[in-house]
Amino acid sequence: MVYRSLDSVTVKDVEALGISSELAQEIHKKVTEIVHNYGSATPETWNRISKHVLTPNLPFSLHQTLYYGCYKDFGPDPPAWIPDPESALFTNIGRLLERHGKEFLGSKYRDPISSFSHLQEFSVSNPEVYWKTVLDEMCIDFSVPPTCILRSPSEESLTLNPGGKWLPGAFVNPAKNCLNVNSKRSLDDIVIRWRDVGDDDLPVKSMTLKELQTEVWYGALHLIDIVF
């Protein structure tokens, strides 16, 4: 299907998607204002449309029309969602970049969003530095630390590990890492969130680290009773 650019979409085009005339005019007016302020084919245009025009109740065909109309000449893989700068700072990767961005990227570092592609390149070209920092940030406690982050494959291991071997020699206890308090996690921190199947209308449930420890200990005691 061929989509028209946003500045070419008319009220009739919106109505043709099964939307009432009154609502189509309202949608068209909002889109026109956004295009006037941000252009007809920019990521910010789509960001505004997705936040201020589209809703789950509108036909998916309208979502497609506006999305592909916005990115008509963008090329492959246009962004469907763009985090706002303030939210990006509070993500794990955002915090990592705020602390180590200049160390990793030097003068290339600006902010977590615009510097993300540079970080991706750095992580590939400098796996030892990048992944050691990430593991430290995650407070991963190795029972036996690895001899390195990535060992290049030898002729003997080329078939088994063509891309090399990650964390050679390392031993880690996943349960210990999940249950222990560390510099970034206290007993009162929420560590699990879930919603039971069929309870979509009920609040999301949560469990603190202390509660998780208690549940695990109870489970371990029951296993001991069963075995012994």
Rank of each mutant, 00 (worst) to 15 (best):
S5I: 03
S5H: 07
L6G: 03
V9P: 02
D13Y: 03
V14I: 15
E15M: 15
S20Y: 00
S20P: 00
E22F: 09
E22N: 11
H28W: 06
V35D: 01
S40T: 06
P43N: 08
T45N: 06
S50N: 14
H52G: 00
V53F: 08
L58M: 10
P59W: 03
S61H: 05
H63G: 00
L66G: 02
Y67L: 14
Y68Q: 03
C70S: 07
C70L: 01
P78R: 02
P79S: 07
W81Y: 15
P83R: 09
P85D: 10
T91S: 14
L96C: 08
L97K: 02
E98G: 13
H100A: 08
D111P: 13
I113Y: 10
S114L: 04
H118D: 15
E121Q: 08
E121R: 09
P127H: 11
E128A: 14
W131R: 01
V134M: 09
L135W: 01
C139Y: 12
D141C: 13
V144W: 00
S154R: 06
L158S: 09
L160T: 14
P162L: 04
G163L: 00
G163R: 00
L167S: 07
L167H: 07
P168N: 09
A170V: 09
N177G: 05
S183E: 14
S183Y: 08
K184E: 09
W194E: 07
V204E: 15
K210M: 11
K210C: 10
W217T: 10
Y218E: 10
G219M: 05
I224W: 02
F228V: 00
